[in-house]
Design a protein around this nucleic acid. Structure first.
Length: 627
RNA sequence: GAUCCCGUAGCUCAGCUGGAUAGAGCACCUGCCUUCUAAGCAGGCGGCCGUUGGUUCGAAUCCAACCGGGAUCACCA
């Protein structure tokens, strides 16, 4: 295939290095565990004279059985791993540790033991303090790390429009950028545009031959769509030529190489490389159309870039670096070509410069990586958002850069994601089975509109307000659908079944936000209480659950940042919102007569709304005030 | 042939640094709007966690083999 980075894994050797190098986005420590860990260590020290590595403590939320009497507790520690150290059975060990904690750590209000599980009840005061913090501060904004990171994503070819696969790439890259920003990093969002090569020449040639001077203006077509149309036209005419040649007795392979159209396209590429003014002018014009089209799509999605690399400017890079590497003995010459030997690392040999001295894909990536680290001083990480079909390519690239001796090579990371499948199988642009990006966005927005009109609770909205709302809801449904699945997993998209607006979806989360917003709007100003005043509040189970979900939010963000995995945030946000809805439908807020309870519930609602909004921001999803 | 990724409910997916009775959503069935937004809530139905072995007090989670699906291994990009 001709795709720049469009082809959508990793092996052990490099995996290890890269994994370790993945972000440590500031020192993050769970605020509850930071109190429990030292106390636990002290307990084991004093009770059993055992020194325990903090990593060894496995905390889990206290398990709640579905039926029967609930187990009391907020956090659970399993003592099985420590039985050898304590020299006692599970229950006595857990009991002893529990007693020690309760006696020495004020936030431990109580505990109980079931088998080897030590269930700890955390004092209300702790939760109240946290709730207050969550309401006042942005708990999903970590302190600055002082690190600068570049995230490359999108990276389309200019011969055809964006499709569903690009959407997964773009949403992932955009979200990862935001997550890294939220965890305190400075982020440079970059895309590489593959604007040169045989693919664009095909579109250009077909336009010249069959276009009759058609432009986006004259045709009313979006620029990228127009150019894509001629790419398809080329392919159709080219195939016809091949068939004619085959019919005339030529073998298929020969026919493919000798068809006049492909020869002409190749000739055009040579002219382009020779800077032929006419070809260059056509190229500028048609690429210009494509950029206008892409930019419209990016704008609609709310995605922006800080830096754009054009392959027409970068494809010459890397050659000198390879020659330098040859001098240093990192590479070797064979049959006139320059090779790297990665067999000691369990990989293959790979050509870096052809016998005729020209570059390959790898050469360019070597050069651009070096250039980026030169351009951006202090850049500590470079993340490539590229499909998993290029796992091997990046594995080799990173290894080469490491061999060249660049210290920053450890900061390279391939954010590899799985393909989006259709029920009919893989998307193939030539077979017309691609799902166009603009079309799917439009369909989702229409779906949101249909659903919204049926509910008819927006009668006082102007048409503009409605349109803006449906735009947000449709995009949220699409983005959330693509982001909630773990990035590495291959996923299925069924256009016929369409994306839900109910259940585990973006709109569900938006709806909860809007509902809270409505509550807050009706309540007037939030009355703040000190923790002492709030301590008169007897938390209901539903309220406690919501607070605990909120409490886990920073850890979810931290995980999303270390794993570069937006689905962690997406799924946690859903869990939180689900818990909130349970609370909302069980307990009165505005109708609560006890003013303290009412204020506390409003406070809780406000904190949920605020953090949900930030979490959704991390996914690139906007939340509406009303819906 | 070699390497990598994936196999969890009818469907789409969580859970995977080993821990209590494996969870959601959709679909299907039952309730809940004269009461803060029903794009909601509560409940029901639905599982040899691909198979077989191994490690362990304990395995969906770790290891091995196998089966099934996908990808990659160009002097293509």
């Amino acid at each position: 295939m001709h795709a720049g980075r469009e082809l959508p894994s990793f092996a052990d050797l490099i995996d290890a290095t890269i994994k370790d190098a993945i972000f440590i986005p500031a020192m993050f420590q769970d605020r509850l565990q930071s109190q429990l860990v030292p106390a636990l260590q002290a307990a084991f020290q004093q009770l059993f004279s055992a020194t325990i590595d903090p990593q060894q403590f496995a905390f889990q939320p206290t398990h709640q059985p579905r039926t029967g009497s609930g187990v009391e507790g907020d956090v659970t520690i399993n003592v099985f791993p420590f039985l050898k150290l304590s020299g006692k059975g599970p229950e006595p060990t857990a009991m002893a540790v529990g007693e020690h904690l309760k006696a020495n750590l004020p936030i431990v209000a109580d505990f109980n033991v079931i088998k080897g599980f030590l269930n700890i009840v955390i004092a209300d005061g702790y939760w109240l303090g946290f709730l207050q913090e969550a309401g006042e501060k942005d708990i999903l904004q970590f302190p600055p790390t002082g690190k600068k990171v570049m995230v490359e994503f999108a990276s389309p070819n200019t011969n055809k429009p964006l499709h569903l696969g690009h959407l997964r790439n773009i949403f992932l890259g955009d979200s990862v950028s935001r997550i890294l920003r939220s965890t305190g990093n400075e982020v440079v969002r970059a895309q590489v545009i593959n604007d040169r090569g045989i693919h664009i020449c095909k579109s250009m040639l077909a336009w010249q031959k069959f276009g009759n001077g058609e432009t986006p203006e004259s045709s009313g077509l979006k620029g990228d769509k127009l150019v894509g149309k001629y790419y398809v036209a080329f392919d159709k005419a080219y195939r016809a030529e091949i068939e004619a040649l085959i019919a005339a007795g030529k073998p298929k392979e020969e026919a493919e190489k000798q068809a006049p159209l492909i020869l002409e396209a190749q000739a055009m590429l040579l002219k382009w490389e020779a800077n032929d003014p006419e070809v260059r002018a056509l190229w500028h014009m048609m690429n210009g159309w494509v950029y206008t089209g892409f930019n419209a799509t990016y704008a609609r999605m709310g995605v922006e870039f800080d830096k754009i690399y054009y392959e027409s400017q970068t494809y010459i890079l890397g050659k000198q670096d390879v020659l330098d590497g040859l001098k240093k003995g990192v590479f070797h010459e064979k049959d006139g070509a320059i090779w790297v030997d990665n067999t000691p690392e369990g990989l293959d040999e790979k050509v870096l410069l052809r016998r005729d001295g020209t570059s390959v894909y790898m050469t360019q990536d070597i050069g651009t990586a070096i250039k980026r680290f030169e351009e951006y001083s202090g850049l500590s990480r470079l993340i490539y958002t590229v499909g998993n079909e290029q796992d091997y390519h990046f594995k080799v690239l990173f290894l080469i850069l490491k061999k060249l001796g660049y210290a920053w090579a450890d900061g390279l990371y391939h954010l590899s994601y799985g393909m989006v499948d259709l029920p009919s199988g893989k998307m193939k642009s030539r077979e017309g089975t691609v799902v166009d990006a603009d079309e799917i966005i439009e369909e989702m927005v229409q779906e949101a509109r249909n659903a919204g009109e049926q509910l008819s609770k927006l009668d006082d909205f102007t048409e503009d307000e409605k349109s803006q709302l449906y735009e947000r809801i449709g995009l949220a449904a699409l983005k959330y659908f693509l982001l909630k699945v773990g990035a590495k997993k291959r996923m299925l998209f069924d256009p016929a079944a369409s994306i839900d607006l109910q259940g585990h979806t973006g709109p569900f989360i938006q709806y909860t936000f809007a509902r809270i917003n409505s509550l807050l709007g009706k309540s007037g100003s939030l009355k703040t209480h000190s923790i002492e005043e709030m301590s008169g509040w007897k938390m209901a189970a539903e309220e406690r659950t919501v607070i605990k979900m909120l409490h886990q939010f920073p850890a979810a963000l931290h995980e999303a940042a270390t794993e570069l995995e937006p689905s962690s945030i997406a799924n946690h946000t859903y869990e939180l919102v689900k818990a909130y809805n349970g609370f909302y439908q069980t307990l009165p807020v505005l109708k609560e007569e006890d003013p303290l309870k009412r204020d506390c519930r409003l406070h809780l609602s406000s904190a949920v709304a605020k953090n949900v909004k930030k979490a959704m921001w991390c996914l690139g999803i906007e939340v509406p005030e009303r819906m």
